[in-house]
């Protein structure tokens, strides 16, 4: 693995809810190497989005708070950093792309103004230089006739074009890390294929690290180098993308892979993980997956299961990992 550019260690995030302070992200650790794509996979409520927002301290405070842990970018600690310092990093060294590009683009300003603003804020260059840079990045994301598109407002773009413009804005300052939170989920599949291709080629050219948050295992298989699977606020397994799909070590990962309808034969019943994920204020004791796990034993319910390191830079949070042989993707 390349030298880590982004390291998250023992991250805890809490939210104030009707049930008091509730920990939605609990002891999450991972790192992303230079030029690497890490997929952060989980279902809704797994804490994957909160984790990705916490990296840039973008969770709303209140009701949220980072209750512990450390987030380091190129060795610099981000937790507890002052807001002005964070603003220097946001959009410059670390950039974000969201699911709904309308949330990252301001409807009241043109695409050009918004990209120029980011460039000028971080580079302090002239208007003309910023404009040239904006044209350059729009060209990069394959927006046709970029110079004339500078004056367009976000709503004048189609969904796919908006997402590409949002990526262009994120790339404007050559970030070292790109955090992409479900960037293709709201897009049609043919447009999703374009955006994935684009991200792949941009990464090859510029070598930025990507933290790719998604629930879609197909997209993970397409784009990611390594994968971290989250369940109920915790990471349950990390592995390279090939290892994870071929020989999952955690029953939840197996369940997710088996649940992909593409892999089920027609007429046969689809594999489904029984039950639903727990609410963060009523986490099961022991392994949080045990109520839904087909391999659970009494011992799984008793105490917290640590994340264990396996050979080949893999980690898994299952106490039966040695005994079980789980099925991967066909």
């Amino acid at each position: 693995m390349a030298a880590p550019i982004l390291e998250v260690e023992d991250l805890g995030v809490e939210f104030l809810t009707d049930h008091g302070w509730v920990r939605v992200v609990d002891g999450v650790s991972f790192s992303v190497g230079e030029g690497e794509t890490l997929g952060l996979v989980g279902e809704s409520g797994s804490g994957k989005t909160v984790t990705s927002l916490s990296v840039m301290q973008l969770i709303p405070v209140p009701p949220g708070r980072i209750s512990g842990g450390s987030i380091r970018f190129a060795g610099r600690e981000l937790v507890g950093m002052s807001e002005p310092q964070l603003e220097d990093i946001r959009g410059d060294d670390i950039a974000m792309v969201f699911q709904e590009s309308m949330t990252s683009l301001n409807p009241a300003f043109t695409i050009g103004e918004q990209i120029c603003e980011v460039v000028r804020r971080h580079r302090g260059c002239s208007r003309r230089e910023a404009r040239d840079r904006a044209v350059e990045v729009l060209e990069l994301v394959q927006i046709p006739d970029p110079r004339s598109r500078l004056g367009a407002f976000p709503h004048e773009f189609s969904g796919g074009m908006r997402q590409r413009a949002a990526i262009a804005m994120a790339l404007a300052c050559d970030p070292k890390v790109l955090i992409a939170d479900e960037p293709t989920t709201a897009l049609d599949v043919t447009v999703q294929a374009q955006v994935l291709d684009l991200l792949r080629s941009l990464q090859q050219r510029f070598g930025m690290a990507i933290l790719f948050v998604t629930h879609n295992l197909g997209v993970v298989a397409d784009l990611c180098d390594r994968v971290a699977v989250m369940y109920a606020g915790r990471i349950v397994e990390t592995a390279t993308v090939f290892d994870l799909f071929e020989s999952p070590q955690h029953p939840y990962t197996e369940g997710l892979l088996q649940a992909m309808p593409q892999l089920g034969e027609r007429g046969k019943r689809l594999a489904a993980i029984p039950g639903t994920p727990p609410m963060p204020w009523q986490m099961p004791t022991g392994c949080r997956f045990h109520p839904r796990c087909p391999y659970a034993e009494t011992a799984c319910t008793e105490q917290d299961i640590p994340l264990r390191a396996l050979a080949g830079d893999r980690h898994v949070r299952c106490r039966r990992v040695e005994e079980l042989t789980l099925e991967g993707a066909q």
Binding site: F15, T17, D18, H19, V22, V24, S44, G45, G47, T49, V50, L53, L58, P60, P63, F98, Q99, E100, T103, D181, E182, T185, M279, P280, W281
Partner: peptide, 22 residues
């Protein structure tokens, strides 16, 4: 904030009846 987050936050409060929650 993304939609996914909004729904995640929403779920946090989703297990009580509307009246009791009010």
């Amino acid at each position: 904030m993304s939609d996914a987050t909004a729904s995640e936050f929403e779920q946090l409060g989703a297990s009580v009846s509307a009246r009791r929650r009010f």
